[in-house]
Design a protein around this nucleic acid. Structure first.
Length: 617
RNA sequence: GCCUUGGUAGCUCAGUUGGAUAGAGCAACGGUUUUCUAAACCGUGGGUCAGGGGUUCGAAUCCCUUCCAGGGUACCA
């Protein structure tokens, strides 16, 4: 059997970091305790932290931190406005960092001293440890991609691949040891369909002879099978068969089933054909994976795992978790959990999907002993995974609670679902090459790469094209279904990957023109502008954004954060007088430091999304 | 039928444990370049947050209900 080269696991290094990670919320925590004290002094009431409801001040008002007065009026026994005013006066008088306050409709907006934010920026944000999480000692497995070997990858697979890769990177950045796994569905009736069609109508065609990429060649015969199969069904129906009977009795499907039996029996000729055609497919997938920039530490093949799970069935029968029906089939009763009865083994002793998955889950745990395991699989399998996890829990597997189904919505076309058999799919390879071509056209229109070498150009266009594609797919919350209109090209302006990449390149250009050298700044050099204050606050959020995204297994929030950061930077860039031309001094150093840190965060954040940040574009 | 996930501007999407006048981008219209990259920035228009009820100082967010759409529903994977 041909296997994909196992890609070597890249060692990942963690820089030493301080014990606690900076958090904007933590930094603002002192406001909460100060407010609690204020309430004690003013109203003689001890209140819980949860009573002090703080949030970021909305942009249209003055200040940076807002306390909501409504929850406090129970204790002050005064109107919200009055309560807020009294609190504000107390805080300004007694807390050094609070310089001013204003009250709008029961909301107390506090202005925090600039020196506080500058200190934050210089001491915390500029530190090399900022946003770097220490290894947490836990291992997580991310299973994604999981393709069938009878057809090329399409846009739906692309979403899966990018999501899986990015979640793996995200968890790595959050301190996990990560194992990326691909469970390849390399056997079954669907593969026999392609094989049979090739045998009948292929005339010995190969990737070399046809010039087709291996997976596309095999996919072509999958479509041919379906076409011929449909013809037979129609013919049978014309002779009076019902649709159902026709589907069952068509000669082609019978032949395919027979071929599957021969495969299972180890028939040498069938196995040889299977190996040959799967080999073509793997060669094709390898190219697509490389273009997408995704990789795996371990491949599992269903041809190796499809017989697993029988032991688990016996174990379940012994433990009384499963029961046997008269015909010999094995079931689990999940009605007490609000689900149905579920078959776990057929009467003839053969496996169903969930049998294999039970066995494979055990095998994966034996192989890696991970603490958590994430399955990146479409939402059509929500029920399957719910049942799978529940069964493993009932079997008393201690690791079952670490299992998580990262369910994502389908990618739909304007006229509905993609169907490989009917050829209504957005092909992954085609889409990738279209994106790169578009990136080339747009960039050359702007005349920005005239002094690039051909190699540099190729790399840049690939980075931009894929940046646009990846960002387009990753910015949307995974569980939402996603609409893709092939007639409308993916944007390169606005809320897009290239916009963020552009921002990074812009900063890099600025830094090099300014001859930037890193140096921590002093705290006082005059007034900082509102947009600079906003920048500090936005940068300060990065570690929390990583944490939120990692805990939610969702790169989307990180993607949106990076866009907000880039947008804010461009406003800053526009509002601030040209930095390069400013005379040397604290202010210039501070601004350059802001630029540098923004570029660093964009670069590392985008890397988590699997998107490169070019130095120039 | 039952279970489940969605429904926010013309389109594509944000909206963290309930907080202020619901935000971006695209598209449309108008403006900004002898100053660090205009893939940028600024402005205008665009909304019954699917409908209805409830909880409360306050609801896109929580609860109930109706409608619409996707997915699942015992021997496909």
């Amino acid at each position: 059997m041909v296997k994909i080269d196992r890609l070597t696991l890249k060692p990942f290094h963690f820089r030493l970091s301080c014990f606690h990670l900076f958090s904007l919320f933590l930094a603002m925590n002192f406001i909460i305790s100060e407010a609690q004290q204020a309430i004690k002094k003013l109203y003689n009431e001890e209140v819980a932290e949860s009573v002090i409801n703080i949030q970021e001040t909305r942009k249209e008002f003055e200040g940076q931190v807002t306390i909501v007065a409504f929850p406090i009026i129970r204790y002050s026994k005064k109107l919200p406005e009055q309560t807020a005013n009294e609190l504000g006066e107390y805080l300004v008088a007694n807390v050094a960092e609070v310089t001013k306050f204003n009250v709008v409709k029961g909301f107390l907006n506090l202005s925090i001293a600039e020196s506080y934010f500058l200190n934050l920026f210089n001491k915390e944000i500029l530190s090399p440890d900022f946003g770097v999480y220490q290894p947490n000692g836990k291992k997580v497995m991310v299973e994604y991609s999981s393709p069938n070997t009878n057809k090329p990858l399409h846009l739906g697979h692309v979403r899966n691949n990018l999501l899986g890769y990015s979640v793996a990177e995200l968890l790595k950045a959050y301190g996990y040891e990560v194992v990326k796994v691909n469970l390849v569905n390399d056997r079954g009736i669907h593969i026999c369909k392609s094989m049979l069609a090739w045998q009948k109508w292929g005339n010995g065609e190969t990737p070399e002879s046809s010039g087709l990429k291996g997976d596309h060649l095999v996919g072509k015969y999958y479509v041919i099978f379906d076409k011929e199969y449909k013809k037979e069904i129609e013919a049978l129906k014309a002779e009076g068969s019902t649709e159902e009977d026709a589907k069952k009795n068509a000669p082609l499907i019978k032949e395919a089933q027979q071929m599957l039996q021969q495969w299972e029996a180890g028939d040498a000729a069938v196995i040889a054909l299977w190996e040959k055609m799967n080999g073509w497919v793997y060669q094709g997938f390898d190219v697509t994976y490389k273009n997408l920039g995704v990789d795996f530490d371990k491949f599992y093949y269903e041809s190796d795992t499809y017989l697993l799970g029988k032991d688990t069935i016996n174990e379940g029968l012994e433990k009384g978790v499963f029961f046997k029906k008269e015909d010999g089939s094995v079931w689990i009763d999940l009605t007490a959990d609000g689900l149905d009865q579920k078959l776990v083994l057929r009467a003839d002793g053969t496996s169903v999907y969930i049998t294999q998955d039970l066995g494979t889950a055990e095998k994966k745990f034996e192989d890696f002993g991970m603490d958590e395991s994430i399955y990146v699989v479409g939402n059509e399998q929500d029920y399957h995974f719910k049942v799978l996890f529940l069964i493993l829990e009932k079997l008393g597997k201690t690791w079952a609670k670490g299992l998580y189904h990262l369910s994502y919505g389908m990618v739909d076309l304007p006229n509905g679902k993609m169907k490989s058999r009917e050829g209504t799919v957005v092909d992954a390879d085609e889409l990738i090459s279209d994106m790169i071509t578009t990136a080339r056209e747009k960039t050359e229109e702007l005349g920005k790469t005239n002094d690039f070498t051909d190699v540099e150009k190729d790399e840049l266009y690939k980075n931009i094209g894929l940046g646009a594609l990846k960002y387009f797919l990753l910015k949307v919350e995974p569980k939402k279904r996603l609409l893709f209109d092939p007639n409308e090209s993916i944007d390169f302006q606005g809320h897009t990957g290239p916009f963020i990449q552009y921002t990074h390149a812009r900063i890099k250009s600025l830094l090099s023109k300014a001859g930037y050298v890193f140096k921590t700044g002093n705290q006082d050099f005059g007034n900082i502008m509102p947009v600079e204050l906003e920048m500090i606050i936005q940068l300060a959020k990065y570690p929390e954004e990583l944490e939120t995204a990692a805990k939610a297994h969702s790169p989307a929030s990180l993607a949106n954060y990076l866009f907000e950061l880039a947008k804010l930077f461009n406003k800053f860039y526009h509002d601030v007088p040209p930095i390069v031309k400013t005379e040397e001094g604290e202010e210039k150093q501070f601004r350059l430091n802001l630029c540098k840190k923004t570029a660093d965060i964009i670069k590392s954040g985008m890397l988590i999304l699997g998107i490169a940040s070019p130095e120039r574009m």
